[in-house]
Amino acid sequence: MSRLRLGRWLVAIPMSLLALATIYPLLFTANVAMKTRRDYILDRFGLTDALRFENISTAWNSVGMGRYFINSLFVVTVSVLLLLLFGSMAGFALSQLRFRGSSALFLGCLAGLFIPFQVIMVPLARIMADTALIDTYPGLILVYVAQFLPFTVFLMTSYYKGIPPEIVDAARIDGSTVYGVYRRIMLPLGTPALLSVGILNALFCWNDVLMALVMMPSADHRTLMIGVTSLRGQYSDNIPTFASGVLIAAIPVLLVYLFLQRQIADGVAAGSTKG
């Protein structure tokens, strides 16, 4: 017991250093975002001489970021909700229910996990064009859902496998339908995993550039990260504006995470006391 406690204090040292290393790049980015282009080119590493926010407003105003922000918010929210719904349904079925072909279906989903987007990029673009889904929000949402669904199904399946089958059996004996078990037991019990996979999926979709570029050729359908990426230009050396764009894109995600990670932790705590 006491040795464990001592160990805790010992590991706190490297963990603090690591924490420092994780905060530093954000501060570094913020520092760059405050500089003028000239200051940055002359001295990349030095501290900014003033708190400047012009770059942030330049970045925001330059390429229709407001519009892109709304687009991203909409696409990411819908995609993540669909992912969580389909992922938890499939995860529940594949982990807790016994039915013919379940392992084959699980392997099929898993195979989807191993497909890099590049390999299917062109065929997928053609499918989307043929079904008139290209350049539409449902099209991009479908592509996101398809891209991250294998990951979500895999995570939910392996999470739900950790839940003792007796819980489901007891509910079934009680007369609950499969759907009832899903809604009243699996969804609440899955909260920590759903929140985690939701955060990760939101992050993947939010930070995606390539899929959005391929699926959304129209300028006003684009997402925030495309806007940020285009701040870099071909050879643009206006890194401070780019850094500002990065902050604009990163800060909302950070806030959402900080808000949700409490819920995860609560979920973790609840799960662990339940035993």
């Binding site: 719904l85 389909f86 992922g87 349904m89 499939a90 529940f92 079925a93 594949l94 229910l97 039915f99 379940s102 279906l105 099929g108 989903c109 669904l149 199904v153 339908t177 499969v178 759907y179 899903y182």
Partner: peptide
């Protein structure tokens, strides 16, 4: 039910 649950994902 199991098939219906996995259907959208599959």
């Amino acid at each position: 039910a199991p098939y219906i649950l996995v259907l959208p994902a599959v």
